[in-house]
């Protein structure tokens, strides 16, 4: 066992973990923050995406001890201080960008990382950026649309809601 310390959504946390403990496991099992989901074991699906020091990473593919001393952001920390949805979350709801909700935390975290670097991405850029986030419900239509809307683009001309 080794001690790991980090801030998660701005709150300092620490715990004793094994070498093999994954960041996703630390968040879910040690901290009880179950918003981060695990949907595969080959680093493909992206349901587990969180931010580590401002960068999107797959938390099921990173050891908890590698995040020692880092600032970690998860889906639980995305809403605004008064608890209302942030711009991206609100756009996902407004444009039906989620169905079962399982991939959603990773999608929102990836979308946030994208918009930080590229505040007004094209449709093609969004689709390409989401290469590491699988969704089985939406056919991606409304996810892409929601991210375009969250970046302030007019999505009225995109066929259906």
């Amino acid at each position: 066992m080794a001690q790991v310390s980090m801030t998660v959504n701005g709150v300092a946390v620490s715990g004793d973990v094994e070498g093999r403990t994954l960041l996703s496991g630390f968040l879910r099992d040690h901290l009880g923050m179950t918003g981060t989901h695990v949907g595969c074991d080959t680093a493909q699906c992206g349901a587990c995406v969180v931010h580590v020091d401002g960068q999107a990473v797959k938390s099921c593919n990173m050891l908890a001890l590698e995040a020692d001393g880092s600032e970690v952001g998860t889906i639980e920390g995305q809403a605004t201080a008064d608890g209302s949805l942030n711009t991206i979350q609100q756009a996902f709801q407004d444009h039906h960008g989620l169905q079962c909700g399982f991939c959603t935390p990773g999608m929102v975290m990836s979308a946030a990382a994208l918009l930080k670097d590229n505040p007004r991405p094209t449709e093609a850029e969004i689709r390409h950026y989401l290469e590491g986030n699988l969704c089985r419900c939406t056919g991606y239509h409304n996810i892409v649309k929601a991210i375009m809307a969250a970046s302030g683009q007019d999505v009225g001309s995109i066929a259906a809601e």
């Binding site: 999107a56 797959k58 990382a113 950026y129």
Partner: peptide
């Protein structure tokens, strides 16, 4: 290579 999150690690 991979995807954005993979490229960050």
């Amino acid at each position: 290579i991979g995807d954005p999150a993979v490229r960050n690690r």
